[in-house]
């Protein structure tokens, strides 16, 4: 549905996107993951026709964005990171304008407005001036304009940024539902978000794709070692020594009154830790598994890449 081939973008002399290629198949929800300034927004802006590529091309539903830009754009619903709202318009008149821009006729706009209002839970705000809405509702209006013309492809740039946790959960739910009849490419820098919403993830770093895989494969790829954070009351030195003797634990460090332990893949030393603490007469206050953070993944991936070269 989306085919990106050898896409390169320079801003002046700065290289923002470096020769990336990927596909998004029909019906897929693909997460575009990367830290800030990785080139996510630039890539999305090129796909939607907001920016022209320096090199390479993109096909949206078999229309390429250079020679058949209008046909390609007709297939896309786009929610930019900065939600493009006219703050002096009401929600209804804004959706009307967005629909007309996409070539819809009045009857269809009226029918679809009611539908998207319901989908995005905006019933009470239809006739409110957008400037008076809170960030979370503005974001929903942004989603509403992206889907009003029932596009085949949805491009969502950081759809959950800057809104409160409840609304983040609602938005994720909404995206999953939209995924039933849309092909979706969404960008985020939040790791758990892709695992909740997406079937596949493309990780981009400094303008290049560093990993591309299904979510289930990715997590196993990332595993290799596990980490736990412990809080224990008792003498630091003795506890550290004892922990180091537990089978499977590779490394123990003590920072900010927490013990961070690292253990080999496939090993779960938690029961043994408990036993050791009881034997020593110390109290285990808490024990939690530390997931791999996005930074860790990038460090790992980029380190691997450099090793390959």
């Amino acid at each position: 549905m989306i085919r990106v081939e050898n896409l390169t973008k320079y801003y002046g002399k700065r290289l923002a996107v470096d020769d990336i290629s990927f596909n998004v198949e029909k019906g897929e929800i693909v997460g575009f993951l990367g830290p800030n300034a990785a080139g996510k927004t630039t890539t999305m802006r090129i796909i939607t026709g907001y920016l022209a590529p320096t090199q390479g091309n993109v096909w949206v539903a078999d229309h390429d964005i250079i020679n058949h830009s209008l046909e390609a754009r007709r297939q896309i619903g786009y929610l930019p990171e900065a939600i493009p709202l006219y703050t002096d318009m009401t929600v209804r008149s804004y959706l009307d304008f967005a629909g007309r821009l996409r070539g819809m006729d009045s009857a269809r706009i009226i029918a679809r407005t009611d539908e998207v209002i319901e989908i995005c839970h905006l019933e009470e705000y239809v006739d409110v001036i957008i400037g008076k809405l809170s960030k979370g509702f503005r974001q929903r209006v942004g989603v509403a304009q992206a889907i009003i013309h029932e596009p085949a492809v949805l491009i969502l740039d950081e759809p959950t940024i800057g809104i409160d946790p409840i609304q983040v959960a609602m938005t994720r739910q909404l995206i999953r539902e939209l995924g039933k009849d849309h092909t979706i490419l969404l960008s985020t820098h939040i790791l758990p978000e892709v695992s909740v919403i997406c079937q596949r993830v493309i990780i981009i770093h400094e303008g290049r794709i560093v990993a591309e895989d299904r979510i289930d494969n990715l997590s196993s790829m990332m595993s290799g070692s596990q980490r736990f954070r412990l809080q224990i009351s008792g003498p630091v030195k003795k506890i550290t020594e004892r922990l180091q003797k537990v089978k499977g634990i590779i490394n123990v460090s003590y920072e900010e009154s927490n013990y961070i332990i690292e253990c080999a893949a496939g090993q779960d030393p938690r029961r043994q830790i408990m036993d050791e603490m009881v034997r020593g007469g110390w109290t285990l206050l808490s024990m939690e598994q530390i997931g791999m953070s996005l930074e860790d993944i990038f460090l790992k991936l980029t380190a691997e890449e450099e090793a390959d070269e």
Binding site: L70, R73, R74, I76, A82, L85, T87
Partner: peptide
């Protein structure tokens, strides 16, 4: 400035 240009020129409009 408001970012609405992004809506306007990514719509299928010349």
């Amino acid at each position: 400035k408001m970012g609405t240009l992004e809506l306007l020129i990514t719509a299928p409009v010349r």
